[in-house]
Amino acid sequence: MSNLDDILSNGNTRGKQSSLSYAGALTPQETYTLIDQGNGVVLVDVRSRAELELVGRVPLAKHIEWASYPGMVPNPDFAAQLQTQVDKNSTVIFMCRTGGRSHNAALLAQQLGYGNAYNMLEGFEGEANEFKQRTLINGWKHAGLPWNN
């Protein structure tokens, strides 16, 4: 699937099925297709700087911390930073480690007037296996999508 409208439609359907108040939810593969096609889609990585440095980053993503390490202290300037860096008319996709913080960021974005806010399911590292190891089940890295240290 490579058509922008089809991908967003699938994301919107997932959003409705999950009763999300924001536009919808996308897989890592769908997210990559959208940003790779250069459709003005913005990927916002909300992970901490420590996560970026220790685990890796997506080259095409903007970075706005949802919370900072240590202590995962909430970023009081997140809303202002988002509004400064991302146009409200953009399609914006939020990504974190597993999809939780990015869900919260998409909720906030919708409340701020971003009508095309999406959460990226699975996150950068994906869910943990029985040994608490990530990147082995799903997520951006598991899908073999571009990232670097």
Rank of each mutant, 00 (worst) to 15 (best):
Gly38Leu: 09
Gly56Leu: 12
Ser2Glu: 13
Ser102Arg: 06
Leu108Lys: 13
Gln17Asp: 12
Asp5Asn: 13
Arg97Cys: 00
Gln81Pro: 00
Phe78Trp: 09
Gly99Asp: 00
Asn12Arg: 15
Ala79Cys: 02
Thr135Trp: 09
Asn3Pro: 01
Leu20Ala: 10
Asn116Phe: 09
Lys132Leu: 15
His142Thr: 07
Asn3Glu: 15
Ala106Gln: 01
Leu107Asp: 11
Arg57Pro: 03
Val44Ile: 00
Ala61Asn: 05
Leu34Met: 09
Thr98Gln: 11
Leu43Ala: 05
Leu20Pro: 01
Val41Trp: 05
Leu108Ser: 08
Phe124Lys: 08
Phe131Ala: 14
Thr91Pro: 11
Pro76Glu: 07
Ile35Leu: 05
Gly113Cys: 05
Gln111Glu: 12
Asn138Lys: 07
Thr31Ser: 11
Tyr22Asn: 07
Phe124Gln: 03
Met120Cys: 06
Ala105Lys: 01
Leu60Ile: 09
Pro146Val: 07
Leu108Tyr: 07
Ala67Ser: 11
Ser102Gly: 05
Asn148His: 14
Gly113Thr: 08
Tyr32Ala: 06
Leu8Met: 11
Tyr114Thr: 00
His103Phe: 10
Leu43Phe: 02
Ala143Arg: 10
Leu52Asn: 04
Asp6Met: 06
Thr98Asp: 02
Gly126Ser: 06
Lys132Tyr: 13
Ser90Asp: 09
Asp5Ile: 11
Leu107Glu: 14
Gly99Ser: 04
Tyr118Cys: 00
Gln110Asp: 13
Val55Asn: 05
Pro146Tyr: 09
Met1Leu: 11
Arg49Ser: 08
Asn10Ser: 12
Thr98Leu: 09
Pro59Trp: 04
Gly11Met: 05
Asn129Arg: 13
Ala105Asp: 02
Arg47Lys: 02
Asp5Ser: 15
Glu122Gly: 02
Gln81Trp: 02
Ala128Pro: 12
Leu60Trp: 07
Tyr69Ser: 11
Ser21Tyr: 12
Pro59Leu: 00
Leu54Ser: 15
Gln110Trp: 04
Met120Ala: 00
Asn138Gln: 10
Arg97Pro: 03
Trp66Arg: 07
Leu108Thr: 14
Gly144His: 03
Arg57Thr: 13
Tyr114Ile: 04
Gln83Pro: 01
Gly24Pro: 04
Asn39Trp: 11
Tyr32His: 14
His103Gly: 00
Leu107Cys: 11
Leu108Asn: 12
Tyr118His: 03
Asn129Gly: 12
Pro74Val: 08
Ser2Arg: 15
His63Phe: 01
Asp36Thr: 00
Lys62Phe: 01
Ala25Leu: 09
Val44Thr: 02
Arg97Ala: 06
Trp140Lys: 04
Asn3Ile: 15
Ile93Phe: 02
Leu112Phe: 06
Asp5Glu: 14
Ile35Thr: 14
Leu20Gly: 03
Phe131Pro: 04
Gly24Met: 10
Ala79Ser: 12
Ala106His: 02
Gln133Thr: 10
Gly56Val: 10
Asn3Phe: 11
Glu125Gln: 15
Trp140Pro: 02
Glu51Gln: 10
Trp147Pro: 01
Arg14Ala: 12
Gly56Glu: 08
Glu125Ile: 02
Ile64Gly: 08
Tyr22Met: 01
Leu60Gly: 03
Glu65Arg: 01
Gly15Met: 08
Asp6Ala: 08
Ala128Ser: 15
Gly139Ala: 01
Pro59Ser: 06
Arg57Trp: 04
Met1His: 14
Gln17Arg: 15
Ser68Met: 08
Gln17Asn: 14
Lys141Asp: 02
Gln81Ser: 05
Ser9Phe: 08
Gly99Val: 07
Gly113Trp: 07
Tyr114Cys: 07
Leu136Asn: 06
